[in-house]
Design a protein around this nucleic acid. Structure first.
Lengths: 233, 233
DNA sequence: TCCTCTATTTGCGTAGACGCAAAGAAATTA
DNA sequence: TAATTTCTTTGCGTCTACGCAAATAGAGGA
């Protein structure tokens, strides 16, 4: 029995074009669960048994190397899929997902995937489209890491945060969840020191405002200019 | 009319487990084409009309940024798929593919994808498995670029080349296609100078042998130790 | 065989990014 | 309220990696 209403999915862009019966079919196999702040939704290396849709909250996806180095692969926002290893025939989760704030998640057992894919064709398409977008973003990031300076990378990381989780306030675009300098560093592939220094400079230039675990981008356009500044300009 | 025999596909790991009729069905929609050395098989940003299987030769997949910086995304080897944008609902190719040597390629129009996917189920699975593997590799690379030094990254790039296109010779494992220092730099995200310097050091240590557009890894295990050496060891 | 073009090596100076360290500030707990 | 923890800022010294430049060496064409 679905304990969630159609309307929960109908609001989301991924499902907007789907027929009501199809959404019901999806919900039949899904069950909702709640994750408290800082709890782990799935874990890197763990056998993949489910895939997920984030209904509300924010999730951080983190990949850790054998040497213990970490990168934040992406943030998952309301309405986005995560843990869709099954769609790519992967047996284990390639990264860990952590609830940044209290999260409500819809959860399908992997066993439901084959039938959902064939019976709700729009769903398979949506999943593969998501994979394609993320794959492209990941390639962009490789290129970025290979060719751009720390300053540009951090600026881009901030702009990515803004686009995904920005909320308009009186002071500018505020990131909707708590995030530390260390975590921004793990998005951009640098150290918290560099992030802190850059934020100080940008604060003096009126581009951003910051506080403990908080970022507000007061001048998005100015920050974009920083991100696009090339080595020899 | 397929102008290629079943046996061409049956040799490849991707198709080994498929029924003969399924392979015939695949071949029915495919047509072979030949690409001369340095010619472009598909181009970044171009509308994706086909997907490909490399029958023989070697292909370099390159992604270029707006500023003109390049990275070599991967190399495609015999029996591997490429240009499978359609499987992820992407309208354009996210990178360019260039024949490193004379190549024989099997080519399907994108219009054949939906029916092949449903009628040859093993094919869809193989495609999605390939995507999953490459996605994981790409994430590994982000992590690598974020946390490792140039020396380690170049060592890893060389080992990747060896695993994918290594050929055992008297002197060691030789990369099967011509590759310049500049190109190795584009794999590792550094400059040709750094690559050249590192190769010189490794040559003195008996790890590699090099020549113009040629790399031989004489001591793979030694090179692995270099790749795994962490910052503070 | 000479010439040209492309690839490679190496030196040198510089700056960008990092490590280490210490101090300051904000939140949490006792 | 004080104590503790976590996060942030900033300074300073160092070294890695890069840019620039010039020399060397193959490969292929005329």
């Amino acid at each position: 029995m679905p304990s969630l209403d159609r309307s929960v999915l109908e609001r989301l862009p991924t499902f907007r074009r789907m027929a009501g019966e199809d959404i019901d079919m999806l919900l039949k196999d899904a069950h909702p669960s709640r994750f408290s702040k800082n709890s782990e939704i799935f874990s890197q290396g763990e056998e993949a048994r489910s895939f997920f849709l984030l209904i509300s909250g924010h999730v951080r996806v983190v990949r850790t190397s054998a040497q213990g180095d970490k990168v934040i692969v992406r943030h998952i926002n309301e309405g986005e899929l995560m843990g869709i290893a099954i769609a790519m025939e992967r047996a284990v989760y390639p990264a860990s997902a952590i609830a940044i704030v209290e999260c409500l998640v819809l959860n399908w057992p992997n066993s439901a995937w084959p039938s959902l894919k064939s019976k709700v064709p729009g769903f398979g398409t949506a999943v593969y489209r998501t994979i394609g977008q993320r794959f492209q973003e990941t390639h962009d990031r490789v290129l970025e890491m290979a060719s751009e300076q720390v300053e540009q990378r951090v600026a881009r990381a901030m702009l990515r945060l803004m686009n995904e989780a920005g909320r308009q306030t009186a002071d500018g675009m505020e990131i909707d969840f708590p995030i530390t300098r260390q975590e921004i560093a793990e998005m951009a592939g640098t150290t918290l020191h560099m992030v802190s220094r850059l934020l100080s400079v940008w604060k003096d230039q009126g581009l951003v405002r910051g506080a403990r675990q908080k970022i507000v981008i007061s001048n998005p356009h100015g920050l974009m200019r920083v991100a696009e500044r090339h080595r020899d300009e």
